[in-house]
Each structure stands twice: as structure tokens, then as C-alpha cells.
């Protein structure tokens, strides 16, 4: 850990990586909270995985793979949203199919792109240490976009997450805001792919918000706390992986998974103790060691 801190002082690539992690945390906290309360983790997983199709196509045609990822993510968000709204009966089958088809398209394109086969792992599992500095600007711009859209339409997005029928009866265009939410998820997925790759995205998107959910009482606070937890987890993961030279993405995800588990158990115990305290107030409570 101390070695990481001293290296951080004079290694620009570490500073860039740390900054990339912090920028990704904003998307994680803000959009991840909506994903968790709306319970659309499976949809988000579908969007994340089918992004490989866009990355593969961009590589094959010699375009920026990140732009390909963004285009594919938005396209797949709209497709998945349409499936959910129009084909509810077969929703999970169709989303599972889109999930796999997107990946298959990506693998085929990458296989036919000369010299790129080795880089597939980078997109699947990410490498925060390879984020080029100019990409921080793109990440910052995507964060700004997320914050502006959510700031403007928070009421409607929250209502669509909370109670679609009520939102519809109050004249909110539920279809529009639902698709908007999925597009926000798509943008966040692209942000996070930089850090952990598209296979692990779903964990980084949902775990910080789920941890925050154990303790907060409003979605707004959930967003703030989840952002802070995301920032802590990515920074700590980066630091822990530095000395033993571990891949950063999986380290961050394992750390997040561990913290989530510990928090779930702790919050369950706290809730049980609270119920017991209200049911049987124990006069000797203060005396126990």
C-alpha cells in the first residue's frame, strides 16, 4: 500500500487510473442506484454484454472502439427497452438472446480484424491502467451528461422507478422516461467498461448502490453514498492490486463483493437487534460486555 502511494506521486499512468476510477464512480453511484431500486440488473447486464458487438464492429472498420461501444450500448438499450415494453411475455428469453447475440457479433468482428485478438481480454475484463489521458475528458463529459439529465428529470425518473402506473396516470410519458433510464444505463456501462471491462460491469454498477441501500432512506442519498463507496472501492482496489501486480478490475470486483456480503450480514444483524430491542426492552442491556 505504501509502495502504491509513493508510486502514485511520480507515475502519471497511476494518477490517470485513479482519476478514471473516480469518474466512473459518479456513474456507478447515480445510475447504479436507479438500476438497483428499479430492479433492472438483468436488463443492464444485457446492455453491457451486447456492447461487445459495437466494440468489435468499430475495431473492424477502424473506428474508435469507445464510440462503437457507446453506439452499441444506446442501440441495445433501446432494443431491450422495446422488448420489455412490447414483448413482456418473453422478456427474459429475448434479453438473454440479445445479450449473447451482441457478444457473438463482437467476437466474429474481432476475429476478422487483423492483429486485435489479443486485446479482446482488455475489453472483456478492462484495464484501468491502460486508460489514455484524453479518455478522461470523454469520461468527464459522460458524467456531466448523466448528472444534467438526472438533475433535470429526477422527479419523473424516480416516479417511473417507484410506481409506473401512478406516473402514467399523472401524465408522465412512462415509455419515454423508461427508455431514457436505459440510455443512461448504456452511457454508464461505457464509462465503467474502462475500469472493469464489460463482463464485470454489472457488479460495479449495482454493488455500491446495493451497499448504500442497506443504510439510506432516500434514492437521492443512495446516489451520494453509492458514489462515495464506488470511489473508495475503485481506489482501494487499484492500491491493493499494485504491489502483488494483480489485474485491477477483478480485484475491485472481489473487494466490492466482499464489502457487499459483509454489509448485508451486518445490516441484517442490526435490524434483528433493533426488532428485539423494541419487542423485549432488556433492562440489563447496558451491562453486557
Amino acid at each position: 500500500m505504501t509502495e502504491f502511494l509513493s508510486a502514485l506521486g511520480h507515475q502519471p499512468f497511476l494518477q490517470t487510473a485513479l482519476l478514471a476510477g473516480l469518474l466512473a464512480s459518479i456513474g456507478t453511484g447515480v445510475v447504479g442506484s436507479l438500476v438497483v431500486v428499479k430492479r433492472i440488473t438483468f436488463l443492464a447486464g444485457g446492455i453491457a454484454h451486447s456492447v461487445l458487438g459495437g466494440i468489435g464492429a468499430a475495431l473492424y472498420f477502424g473506428l474508435d472502439p469507445l464510440l462503437g461501444a457507446l453506439a452499441a450500448a444506446v442501440l441495445s438499450a433501446l432494443l431491450i427497452g422495446w422488448v420489455r415494453l412490447a414483448w413482456q411475455a418473453q422478456e427474459d428469453t429475448l434479453i438473454g438472446a440479445l445479450w449473447a447475440i451482441g457478444m457473438a457479433v463482437g467476437v466474429l468482428f474481432v476475429a476478422k480484424t487483423p492483429g486485435y485478438a489479443g486485446d479482446l481480454m482488455t475489453y472483456l475484463f478492462g484495464n484501468i491502467l491502460l486508460v489514455p489521458q484524453r479518455e478522461l475528458w470523454l469520461m468527464g463529459a459522460l458524467d456531466a451528461l448523466l448528472l444534467i439529465v438526472i438533475g433535470l428529470y429526477y422527479r419523473q425518473l424516480l416516479a417511473v422507478c417507484f410506481d409506473e402506473e401512478l406516473a402514467r396516470l399523472r401524465g408522465v410519458n412512462v415509455t419515454f422516461y423508461y427508455l431514457l433510464l436505459l440510455v443512461l444505463v448504456a452511457v454508464t456501462v461505457v464509462l465503467l467498461i474502462q475500469v472493469v471491462g464489460l463482463i464485470l460491469v454489472i457488479a460495479l454498477l449495482t454493488l455500491p448502490a446495493a451497499i448504500a441501500g442497506h443504510y439510506v432512506k432516500s434514492v437521492g442519498r443512495m446516489m451520494a453514498v453509492a458514489t462515495a463507496i464506488g470511489a473508495l472501492l475503485t481506489s482501494l482496489g487499484l492500491a491493493l492490486s499494485y504491489e502483488p501486480d494483480l489485474p485491477v478490475g477483478p480485484t475491485i470486483i472481489l473487494l466490492a463483493g466482499f464489502v457487499y456480503l459483509a454489509s448485508a450480514i451486518a445490516s441484517r444483524l442490526i435490524a434483528r437487534r433493533r426488532t428485539r430491542a423494541t419487542l423485549h426492552p432488556d433492562p440489563a442491556d447496558g451491562e453486557s460486555p
Partner: peptide, 10 residues
Amino acid sequence: PGFARDFPIS
């Protein structure tokens, strides 16, 4: 109610 009872909201 058309919502989850454990939704974090006042």
C-alpha cells in the same frame, strides 16, 4: 400499491 414496500422513500 403499485410499488415495492422496501423502496427507500419517505
